[in-house]
Design a protein around this nucleic acid. Structure first.
Lengths: 344, 344
DNA sequence: CTGAAAGCGCTTACAG
DNA sequence: CTGAAAGCGCTTACAG
């Protein structure tokens, strides 16, 4: 009978307090592990909670305490395994801080991002980790700060005045170019795709600088389709311009996988008469044949960094803006060959 | 000055009501788009909300209305691209229902799953979509129902009495076996890995039945490592038993990718003198060489189905348990060859 | 169609 | 160390 009516049956803190013969305030202190309450009392209250099957009502607590123990995470794309790994890193540290993540997808569209951020505010998240959609205005993320909503940018950044956790894309490109140069390559292409944002531009800029500083032509940049399945058929773009490259650096491993297939279709032997470098170093790199040489970015770690940045800011909102930019690492496998061999 | 003090400055519904010269109740009705309020009044209240920069406080609303507009999603693994796609489908329909997803990772561990589910309750989610960790007891998911917490199982199921959205794994295996049989294969291996759960057992069972019904030996089941990078080196397991298979069906595309590399390393030519079928049909299948023939499961759709099941149950909690089991589809590409060619 | 009052389940000072 | 009271920002009957 009593468990028959649905909501009404909720066990409240007051029930627990009565059952344990203490006041509601005392019970509240026990829950929050305050040292103010005596050991004997604590044990009694805890027993009462167990016996009654009490469940803490975070919603009620939040209303009073103005903290929701939730953080919003908004990414432009959930399908991409790269974001899945990022999310995994974020979730792990947010979880171990006793908080919970509210997830949203902006679809890389600023209008959707507006909506999503409003929804986050309505849900009273304590802070948000945002990978800004392409074309996000700096004012947008700065405005969030004015709402008293702590924010950290992840992977992409549009404002210098807001925390950022990412990776040194430009240095990663330099590592790739240096490595290929050490093998004797000078005609190196760069295959890009997808929406334009800071992480995109940094890669392009890094490529350009690295090429120019060695006196190489930085102009061999091709754009391949965003859709994975259509990348192989675009491999011919590498050879359509005047001078043929002997190596290609890829925007990410998805492009590397696609071009690798496309080069194969064109009769090129990757790792023998053509060299290919990936970017991100996802798990698949190890099981490609030839094994893919790739610049590792470590999305899980980036996610962890972003979450820690946010946690710090929650503790001290007055912290000056910080950036945690992780170094990349070139993971050499088998997809590149010395130019000598290439020209045989 | 007024925006200087942080929390205190929140604009409340009462502020809006005063600004618009109506009562708080009326303002509340406007927000919830009740038809009870006059057009002129509505416009005035909406203008006030805009002018004041009002943000709805979901937390306060939930406390009174006993609905949080949040749903919990707990998956065993965030890193796996398959779950990322599932999540993407869930998020899309939850979002368009005006709700928000709280995400958690059970790590496929029942103890962590206990914790996570408790956290979900504390946060007052309206329902949860759960991919049960391996070894989850049926009682566990049934108990959730007794908490008055609507639950749907996704991808894996441990109880018949609780909603389930998944895919017909057994039929998928049958499709794979039938196809290989049509090419003349009879010595077909099955390569599995990972934790044991319903989706695992259904695949094994489907394989066994399909093989036995044709009079083939269903005993060639090998277990490869869970870690992607270690799969290629385990390809020799296919040939360690007495009879050598001429084809292998893989537990999923990750296994297919790994074994494809391992077979290559052993000097076998996939799609020529050895046949290989994947499972899941992820985007990468199209860019493998040879292109991977794979049984497609469509995780995005499964996620959408699960979310809709939950939404329905939220509307009517008394619905009998339902299951939405999607059909698989064999996507034929190039990784299988007729046995005739194989034996040449 | 609108207003005044009570209450959702906590936490927070403030006394004792 | 514990108790009584007020209040977080909404929604819900209940009158008018």
């Amino acid at each position: 009978m009593p468990s028959d009516d649905r909501k009404k049956s909720r066990v409240t803190l007051l029930d627990v307090a009565r059952h344990a013969n203490v006041s509601r305030a005392t019970a509240s202190l026990v829950i929050r592990k305050s040292p103010l309450v005596g050991a004997e009392t604590r044990v009694r209250v805890e027993a009462a909670m167990r016996e009654l099957g009490y469940v803490y009502n975070m919603g009620a607590a939040r209303l009073r305490a103005e903290r929701s123990h939730t953080v919003g995470v908004v990414v432009p794309n959930l399908t991409n395994p790269f974001f899945a790994e990022l999310l995994s890193g974020i979730e792990a540290v947010i979880d171990s801080a006793g908080m919970v993540v509210i997830l949203a997808n902006s679809g890389d569209l600023v209008e959707r991002q507006d909506m999503v951020m409003r929804r986050m505010r309505e849900h009273g998240v304590d802070g948000v980790i945002l990978c800004p959609a392409a074309d996000t205005a700096p004012e947008f993320v700065e405005r969030v700060g004015e709402w008293n909503l702590p924010l950290v940018q992840v992977l992409r950044h549009v404002s210098e005045d807001v925390d950022y956790a990412g990776v040194d894309y430009a240095a990663g490109m330099r590592q790739a170019v240096d490595y290929l140069a050490s093998l004797g390559h000078r005609k190196i292409a760069f295959a890009v795709h997808g929406p334009v944002h800071s992480a995109y531009l940094e890669r392009i800029e890094g490529f350009r600088e690295a090429m120019v500083s060695r006196g190489f032509d930085p102009g061999m940049i091709i754009r391949v389709p965003y859709q994975t399945a259509r990348i192989p058929a675009s491999a011919h773009l590498l050879f359509d311009k005047g001078e043929e490259p002997t190596a290609v650096i890829c925007f990410n491993d998805v492009v590397a996988l696609g071009l690798s297939a496309g080069l194969h279709d064109l009769g090129r032997e990757v790792g023998e008469n053509f060299s290919l470098v990936g970017f991100d170093d996802v798990a698949e790199a190890e099981v490609m044949r030839p094994r893919l040489t790739s610049v590792s970015t470590g999305p899980v770690t980036i996610g962890e960094n972003a979450a820690r940045l946010l946690l710090d800011r929650l503790i001290d909102p007055m912290l000056p803006p910080r950036r945690v930019v992780k170094e990349t690492q070139l993971h050499i496998r088998q997809s590149c060959a010395p130019l000598a061999v290439t020209t045989l």
